[in-house]
């Protein structure tokens, strides 16, 4: 079976947990210590996919670009987004402004990759009650054609595999 490689990016404000989500997904680890990412770090993980309808199976190597977070003082280089098939836009459920910036991040990505797949991770869901998370999710006002909004926790692992797996599956099916 040929392995397909797909580039996907992580976007979001600083400190929302992009690196932690990747670390949880790739290395099955988590650390509470905040380490600011500068530049970009590429991680790889091969996921096994199966189309339930056609029974077709596929190995897909995800090249996950962990791009430095947006800050008030610095926006990211659009070059990082070139050639990416999908993006995971991450916000921190405990910091409203990071949720407010989701729309901007999506637009930024779409300008470079109009057909790229977009999924949203509302991270640090372990710090909130389930009903609070639900309420915040309901209040979101996001553009259509989003693959999905997932409340995730890199700390507990909640929804982490799911969101990457779903995104990978979509990248394979749509062959972005």
């Amino acid at each position: 079976m040929t392995v397909i490689s797909k580039k996907m990016c992580m976007l979001g404000d600083f400190g929302v947990g992009k690196t932690s989500l990747i670390r949880r997904f790739v290395e099955r680890q988590f650390s509470d210590r905040y380490l600011s990412t500068v530049g970009v770090k590429i991680s790889r993980k091969t996921v096994h996919l199966k189309d339930v309808q056609t029974e077709k199976e596929q190995e897909l190597k995800l090249l996950i670009w962990d791009i430095e977070g947006h800050t008030k003082f610095k926006s990211i280089s659009p070059a990082y987004l070139q050639g990416s098939s999908g993006v995971l836009v991450v916000a921190d459920l405990t910091r409203q402004e990071t949720i407010d910036h989701l729309g901007d991040r999506i637009q930024e990505y779409r300008e470079i990759n109009p057909h790229g797949q977009v999924a949203i991770a509302l991270n640090k869901s372990d710090l909130l009650e389930e009903e609070e998370v639900l309420e915040m999710k309901n209040k979101l006002n996001l553009p259509e054609a989003i693959l999905g909004v997932y409340n995730t926790s890199a700390k507990t692992g909640n929804n982490v595999d799911t969101i990457f797996q779903e995104l990978a599956y979509k990248l394979w099916l749509t062959n972005c």
């Binding site: 400190g15 905040y34 003082f73």
Partner: peptide, 12 residues
């Protein structure tokens, strides 16, 4: 990295 670590930590 040192600079952003500090600034971002303060921000958080």
């Amino acid at each position: 990295q040192t600079l952003f670590q500090q600034v971002n930590e303060n921000g958080l």
